[in-house]
Design a protein around this nucleic acid. Sequence first.
DNA 1: TGGTCAACCAAACAAGTGCTTGGTAGGCTA
DNA 2: TAGCCTACCAAGCACTTGTTTGGTTGACCA
Lengths: 207, 207
Amino acid sequence: MSTEPTAPTRRTELLGIAAGLFAEKGFKNTTVRDIAEASGILSGSLYHHFDSKESMVDEILSTFQEELFAAYDAVLASDVDARTKIDRAVRLSFQAIDQHPHEVAIFQNDAGYLGGFERFGYLAERNAQSREVWVSLLTEGVRSGALRHDLDIELTYRFIRDTVWVAVKWYRPGGRHSHVEIADQYLTILLDGISTDPQSPSPRERP
Amino acid sequence: MSTEPTAPTRRTELLGIAAGLFAEKGFKNTTVRDIAEASGILSGSLYHHFDSKESMVDEILSTFQEELFAAYDAVLASDVDARTKIDRAVRLSFQAIDQHPHEVAIFQNDAGYLGGFERFGYLAERNAQSREVWVSLLTEGVRSGALRHDLDIELTYRFIRDTVWVAVKWYRPGGRHSHVEIADQYLTILLDGISTDPQSPSPRERP
DNA sequence: TGGTCAACCAAACAAGTGCTTGGTAGGCTA
DNA sequence: TAGCCTACCAAGCACTTGTTTGGTTGACCA
């Protein structure tokens, strides 16, 4: 990320406060007066720093997405087998939830609403991009024999995406489980299942 | 359900329209004028049928939850092993998404916000109740040897709950996958994993 | 000392919000 | 025919919303 050195300006501080409120109550449900009160100023004063309430989420989300997808690209480009890539991508996601819970929560809760505005078209683009990453990883895994070939790639992608990202709704940094423990447990279940016996028909076959 | 025979009254019709809008745009983000316009009447006329906008969601959610939890109770009370119960509970959930997509979506998206009002205290209660159902099922499964005993019950419960219910965000009745196919695929992955080989350490052990 | 500037205040505005009020049209029934 | 009832309209009220405007404060600097 080679933008500015990002000094901890008042602007940045206000964005952090806004992000917390957006994540907690939702974008539409958070008023500029809420943000102002939490910042110890009046609502009108926010407009000295930002054009609009929309531009606040915009800055919050776009900054985060840039960072996140740079990390995904690094995983995709790494020279390891599909299984390891999947492992890393899952861990990366839980780590993102740990380090940027507000941003992830806003994206999870309000992407649908915000996506309706032209300004936030990049949200849908990033979503499609993320899907392609996962679908290609899973396809590679099946082709290499590391993953079962009776998998429906599209459904499997959705299951993984959903489970990973919705965790932001209950995960609390510094809580009972670290994001690493959660990733461990999920990867165990995802790769090998919760069962002791393989289920009756069509068990683990090799290509 | 032994309430009233529920004739297809205008009231019921309006509730259905409201449910669709709430599910699509969120409760807070749907105005009474939206609902009225979609119904072909003026906003004030809604108050001939309902006390408030809140009482509309209330009726939508409470009716659905009653029905859903009666079904869960039946699964819990059935005389089969834990694995079969888990199978049935998962299928039941995907079926609920298929038959009541609006209600599920509203619950998923707005339970957090609505839960803040006393009136909707039952939402949190039902949530706790649902957790107990799953935790007891999983615990029984581990104890009986059907499920791996290195599972973190709490995390496993959350993973299952999240994956199942968030599916309402992309599942479309009559779409490419039936709810039965989706349940099949998810149960396959959940029980046996996506991998062909059991992962390196601590594979499938018996108690 | 005077000028500049970021940060903020105080007050308001227009649009949108949930909801209320008084009234009306038309069907059903006693 | 009279009375009642369901379903609705028309208009508005009180409040909240995002945003604008003109002015004030205090730190920094030449």
